Lab assay of single mutants.
Amino acid sequence: MQIFVKTLTGKTITLEVEPSDTIENVKAKIQDKEGIPPDQQRLIFAGKQLEDGRTLSDYNIQKESTSHLVLR
């Protein structure tokens, strides 16, 4: 499924993911596309910070959901 990640600069990154993917996996995909190390990434969805060990389905992130990327 596709999800979108919006950066603070207003850029939207499109990612191909599975509901069973962990947040860690998603951060690795963002690193592949954008070159941002996962330890600098914070992903926010529905006002919550997403934890590495959880999956997209844990957070009820469905296709075409948009989460926000904040850099630390």
Rank of each mutant, 00 (worst) to 15 (best):
L50T: 03
I13K: 00
E24N: 07
E34Y: 07
Q49V: 15
T12N: 05
V5E: 01
V5F: 06
V70E: 14
G10H: 05
T55R: 11
Y59K: 01
G53V: 07
D32N: 10
F4Y: 13
V26D: 00
P37Q: 06
I44F: 15
L43Q: 00
A28T: 10
Q2W: 10
K48I: 14
E34F: 08
Q2K: 13
I23C: 01
Q62F: 13
Q41M: 13
V5I: 14
F4E: 06
K27H: 02
Q41N: 03
K6A: 07
Q31K: 10
L43V: 03
F45L: 07
T9R: 11
Q40I: 10
K48Q: 14
T12D: 04
I13M: 05
T12C: 14
I30D: 00
E64Q: 10
I3L: 08
L69R: 02
S67E: 13
V17D: 00
V17C: 09
Q41T: 05
E18D: 12
L56N: 01
N60P: 03
D52M: 05
D58G: 03
T22H: 04
E64A: 11
L71D: 06
I44S: 11
L15A: 01
I44E: 12
R42E: 12
Q2M: 12
A28G: 09
K27M: 07
R72D: 13
Q2C: 10
V5K: 00
D39V: 09
R54P: 03
G10R: 04
V70M: 11
E24F: 14
E34A: 12
V70S: 05
R42T: 15
E34M: 15
D58Q: 06
E18K: 14
K11N: 08
Y59N: 02
E18M: 14
S20L: 09
F45Y: 13
D32Y: 10
H68A: 07
N25W: 09
T14N: 06
D32H: 11
P37T: 06
S65Q: 08
T55W: 03
Y59S: 02
V70Y: 12
I30A: 01
S20F: 11
K63W: 11
I36K: 02
P37W: 05
I44T: 11
P19R: 06
L43P: 01
L69A: 02
I13F: 09
P38E: 06
T7H: 05
D52C: 06
I23S: 01
E34V: 15
T9I: 07
G47L: 03
D21C: 07
K27D: 00
K48E: 12
K6G: 05
D21T: 11
N60L: 06
L69H: 02
P38S: 13
Q62T: 15
K27L: 05
L8W: 15
Q49G: 06
K63Y: 10
D21W: 10
V26F: 03
F4V: 12
I13P: 00
Q41I: 10
T9P: 05
L71T: 08
S67G: 15
E16W: 14
Q62I: 11
A46G: 10
T12P: 03
A28I: 14
L43E: 00
S57G: 10
E51P: 03
I13G: 01
E64R: 08
I44N: 05
F45D: 01
E18F: 14
V26T: 03
T12L: 14
D58H: 08
R54M: 11
Q2P: 06
M1G: 03
L8A: 13
T7A: 05
T66V: 12
T7G: 06
D39T: 10
G10W: 04
G35F: 04
D32A: 14
E34K: 04
Q40F: 08
Q41R: 02
L15S: 00
K48A: 10
I3E: 01
Q41C: 07
I36R: 02
V26S: 00
D58N: 04
K63D: 13
Q49T: 15
K6D: 09
Q2I: 15
D21F: 07
K63V: 09
E18W: 13
D21L: 05
L71W: 05
D39Q: 11
K11S: 08
H68I: 15
A28V: 11
T66H: 15
E64S: 12
N25H: 13
K63M: 11
T66I: 12
R54Q: 08
T12K: 07
R54A: 07
V17K: 00
G47E: 05
K48R: 10
E34N: 08
I13S: 01
K29A: 05
L8K: 10
G47W: 04
I61M: 07
Q62M: 12
N25K: 14
I36S: 03
K6S: 07
K63H: 15
E24P: 02
A46S: 09
V26P: 00
S20D: 11
L15D: 00
L56S: 00
T14D: 04
D52F: 04
Q2E: 09
K33C: 09
I23E: 00
Q31F: 15
E18Q: 13
D52E: 09
K6I: 13
S67D: 10
I23L: 04
L56V: 07
G10P: 02
K6T: 12
K27C: 01
E16L: 13
Y59E: 03
G53W: 13
L8R: 10
M1A: 03
P38N: 06
T14W: 07
E64G: 15
M1N: 03
I30V: 04
D58M: 04
Q2T: 14
R72V: 15
E16R: 08
H68L: 14
L71M: 09
P38L: 13
Q40H: 13
K29Y: 06
R42A: 10
S20G: 12
G53P: 05
S57H: 09
I36Y: 12
G35R: 05
K27Q: 02
I3V: 05
V70T: 07
K33V: 12
L8I: 13
E64Y: 13
L56Q: 00
P37Y: 05
I23Q: 01
N60E: 07
T66E: 11
V26R: 00
K27I: 03
I13N: 00
V5M: 03
V26C: 03
T66N: 10
I61E: 01
L50G: 02
V5C: 03
Q49A: 11
L71Y: 06
G47Q: 04
T55H: 05
